[in-house]
Nucleic acid binder design. Structure first.
Lengths: 335, 335
DNA sequence: TGTTAAATTGTAATCGATTACAATTTGATG
DNA sequence: CATCAAATTGTAATCGATTACAATTTAACA
């Protein structure tokens, strides 16, 4: 391994001069700079990131906890994080937690072991134990999407799920729908509560009765969409409008509707959340809520960077705007 | 920060004893072990990963270069890599190169700066320059999928693209198709060549004339599928069977076919490669080649681990088996 | 040319661990 | 109880950088 000592000998200077040449070139004469750079090239020298980090106490790395890397929605967020990270000289360490809480604390503790400077949480389960809660207070941390605990000790960048849900409900009500159903994802979460109460508020205003049995589902997956739709279609009173809590669920729901020989949107309207790429190219294209995922990621990274550099934060939580994309999977209620 | 010194003082022993207690507990008496562990708990001490790594010269981290994190096919590979990595005590650093060659060398050079121990390449563009080629020879590196250079200096885990392509062609020929078209992805690659020659070989055997103008496309994206299909449908002689070089392209192609009011598979059969999750839930479900992505990732990580630990490799290259999944997007040729 | 301040370079401590080697303690044995 | 080997613990060097401080060189000015 070529280290700084070897280079310093090659150039006939001290290690300090080599270090300075590379980190603050203005501090050395043009002549020595030449000599050193020549030696660096000759030896093919690259400073050890490890050694630099151990000395400076900064890794310029941040950890992102992702519940599911396969979900393209999270990937859009991560795209935003990476962009902002790159601009600020941070490297992103992606950690797929698979919803496994042990993995989550393992990865989260990387910040404690000097492996990363901060943490972005896309899930909503960490911190789940008291130990973790203590941990969360001592490390720079930002949540993008939501967090479950009421007393937020760290900044949160999220969507206005309540308003987004109302927007979808209004859209469907305006098409004359009165028989609603919902296929939900993970139940224990703020997202879940906000979206449900958004829907309920619109239905109450419109004086539409909502059958609580029309809430089914338990995870953000295609399979859950299929199973949820199957359950809904078994009911005596078939719904005419189904709100899916993400696009994967909607894809599954649409698949099951087609399988049973029904038509979208003629028989049933289906809407989703997230606007993943493929949703625009389904048959029919899916009506959904476009979340500003990229922007959320960007903003989350900006906040985290400020936290790490102990820049005082102006606001601790932010809500970004959404957009209702009306496509062909929703239409007039059947007569 | 609580460091080993503080703990050693708390426990009334030397730093060496603390280190030994944590790394080789058998070397210390039960009594001192107790004392030290108590102090560790009390101080909430965690050894600095940075310091440990700089001393041992091992980071137990590997870098994975991914052309596009949003593609679920790559994510399946990464799932396999992560599994094998975890079993061997490695952490995976995911790098989305976006096809940007500068980013690629940047990330690749992490291995040179003691930031990672090895590299897995999912793309086929690195190493592209001579500098990189030299780099590739000095660091532990494995390619999962393919590499472009002929003289392979490192192990490759891939699919038998030639055979897979033949399998699709046979499937379509058996349905009576004689007018073929192809929508390709990235052109400059071994994958491209192998798949094309696989198709050609079957058509030659079956004495079917292949019109070279029926090859369109330039990238592995939904948009490219749409545009490619648009071009194909403009031709005077419409194809009855379209082979897409990945499922994203197929999704775009199907979307365009539907948009023009044609039916799948009645008018045109569409097939893909990869078997991404959503392909089974499209309308109609997509006939495709299932690549053992997870297994490819696993195997790649196993090979890399052996390289890093300088275990002699038994084989340098491996081809894993594929499976043709016949679904509803392909059927008898129209009469 | 001599004096002094500024710019450049070198020496050595430091970051937080690990580990070779030395020192000490323990325990077995006669 | 003395002796010696084995087990345990401590001291200090080390990994590869950075940086405070000291030493030296350069430049400016009288």
């Amino acid at each position: 391994m070529t280290n700084i000592k070897k280079v310093s000998e090659l150039a006939g200077v001290s290690t300090a001069t080599v270090s300075r040449t590379l980190k603050m070139p203005d501090m050395v004469t043009a002549r020595t700079r030449e000599k050193v750079m020549q030696a660096v090239r000759e030896a093919g020298y690259r400073p050890s990131w490890l050694a630099t980090s151990v000395k400076t106490g900064r890794t310029n790395t941040i950890v992102v906890l992702v519940p599911n890397l396969v979900n393209p929605f999270f990937m859009r967020i991560i795209g935003g994080i990476e962009q902002a990270a790159q601009e600020r000289g941070f490297t992103v360490l992606l950690c797929d937690t698979q919803g496994d809480s042990k993995r989550e604390s393992d990865y989260a503790s990387m910040v404690l072991t000097n492996r990363a400077d901060g943490l972005i949480q896309l899930d909503h389960s960490f911190p789940f134990s008291d130990d973790d809660a203590k941990l969360a207070e001592t490390i720079p941390m930002v949540s993008v999407c939501e967090r479950i605990h009421a007393e937020k000790k760290y900044p949160v960048v999220s969507l206005d799920n309540y308003a987004a849900s109302r927007s979808l409900a209004h859209h469907l009500v305006s098409y004359g729908h009165r028989k609603f159903a919902v296929i939900v994802g993970q139940v224990v979460s703020q997202i879940h509560k906000d979206r449900l109460s958004g829907l309920r508020s619109v239905l109450a205003e419109e004086e539409i009765v909502f059958d609580e049995n029309m809430i089914v589902g338990e995870s953000y997956s295609i399979e859950n969409g299929i199973e949820g739709m199957r359950q809904l279609l078994e009911k005596t009173q078939r719904p005419t409008a189904v709100i899916c809590f993400n696009d994967d669920i909607a894809i599954g729901a649409m698949h099951e509707i087609h399988r049973q020989g029904l038509k979208i949107p003629d028989d049933i309207s289906v809407v989703g959340f997230d606007n993943v790429k493929v949703s625009a190219f389904l048959n029919p294209p899916l009506t959904t809520i476009d979340q500003p995922a990229y922007e959320m990621g960007r903003r989350g990274m900006e906040l985290l960077s400020d936290l790490i550099n102990t820049v005082p934060l102006t606001r601790s939580s932010e809500m970004l705007p959404f957009q209702l994309l009306e496509r062909k999977s929703s239409g007039p209620a059947p007569v």
